[in-house]
């Protein structure tokens, strides 16, 4: 069984929701989990609910990195931070993968500092899953967007590698035999977007190992046109935050409208079951987290606002990725394009 190191102190609702999520996993599966963090706080939380102590161990450490802290500074000052200890455990082979809902920058830095890049991989990519419309039968309701911030500016070859890595991950985790890969651009035409994107388009088109569907525009991201959307970190991050922002703004606007008018309230009440269904389908907690791809060791970055359910699913995704030997799959795919 895979052993997953979980950063117990990382996330907006840590350690409570993280520990609860791990306790849930311990009752539902045989996945072994090492909770890394303040041992006394972790045990006090475990004591509050049902759990299986036989597959949970605790690695005590004294500090943690806050969500708003500068990751460089914080990691320099806190060598004993839970995320750093968890990453070292994975690097040393004490655990097979790392799961954290904590500071994204710190997660990326810890992975970069402790894990080796897969041979041939030039840059690691931080992926993110997002809810989207599906167009084809069997498509996952979540798309994969990478990179969303690990590498700010990329070369064409790096974007091509991101596509290969994302495709390998989607093949294994989303069980899509041939995931559709799109390159995020300002137009569908292959000559758009400047030298890097034009060159990346050419390289992707010539890669036999992936199902490249061409350039995708911003309005394609939320559709099922591509299962894997590739972008350089700056652009990917902007798109991700835009998606989240629009979702939140829509919720606020609806709440405001309902507050102002009883007709809207009535209409929303009638639509409530449908809204609830959509919310359930697109709830990020069902997916758990997204990987940092390109390292020999796996790190799953869960959403900062992860609930216990999201953490539990992130641990399951990590275990599945370990069992499915994602890193080996990526290594083979990358070797195939060299």
């Amino acid at each position: 069984m895979p052993r997953i190191a979980v950063d117990a102190m990382g996330g907006d609702f840590a350690p409570d929701e993280v520990v609860k999520g791990v306790a849930t996993v311990s009752l539902e599966s045989e996945i072994e989990v090492v909770l890394v963090g303040d041992s006394a706080r972790i045990q006090a939380l475990l004591d509050e609910g049902p759990y299986n102590p036989e597959i949970i161990s605790v690695r005590h450490c004294t500090s943690s990195i806050g969500m708003a802290e500068d990751p460089h500074e914080a990691l320099r000052a806190k060598r004993d931070a839970s995320i750093a200890v968890a990453a070292r455990m994975v690097a040393d082979g004490e655990a097979d993968a790392l799961v954290t809902a904590g500071n994204t920058g710190a997660a990326v830095l810890c992975a970069a500092k402790n894990f080796k890049l897969i041979r041939g991989v030039r840059r690691a990519a931080l992926a993110s899953v997002y809810p989207r419309e599906t167009e084809l039968p069997g498509q996952d309701v979540f798309g994969l967007l990478l990179d969303v911030g690990a590498t700010i500016r990329c070369e064409a070859a790096e974007l091509a590698q991101f596509a290969v890595m994302g495709s390998a991950y989607a093949r294994r985790v989303s069980k899509q035999p041939s995931p559709r890969v799109g390159l995020l651009n300002m137009g569908r035409e292959e000559g758009k977007g400047g030298d890097v994107l034009v060159e990346a388009h050419r390289m992707l088109r010539e890669l036999p190992s992936i199902h490249f569907v061409g350039n995708v525009e911003g309005n394609d991201v939320a559709t099922g046109r591509a299962d894997v959307v590739v972008a350089e970190g700056l652009l990917g991050n902007v798109v991700l935050k835009l998606l989240e922002g629009i979702g939140e703004a829509a919720s606020h606007l609806a709440a405001q409208a309902a507050h102002d008018s009883w007709r809207v309230r009535l209409g929303m009440a009638m639509l409530a079951p449908g809204i609830e269904k959509v919310r359930d389908m697109t709830d990020f907690s069902t997916y758990g987290g997204a990987p940092i791809l390109g390292f020999e060791r796996l790190c799953i970055k869960a959403h900062g606002r992860s609930s216990a359910r999201a953490v539990a699913n992130a641990v399951k995704v990590a275990a599945k990725a370990v069992r499915d030997r994602i890193a080996d799959e990526i290594a083979e795919s990358v070797a195939g394009i060299r």
Binding site: E32, S39, A40, Q43, D47, P53, E54, I55, I56, S57, V58
Partner: peptide, 16 residues
């Protein structure tokens, strides 16, 4: 029960 599971049980009892 593996040695690891027994060890985790022991550590749990200590923590509690």
């Amino acid at each position: 029960w593996s040695g690891e599971r027994l060890r985790n049980s022991l550590d749990d009892l200590v923590r509690r």
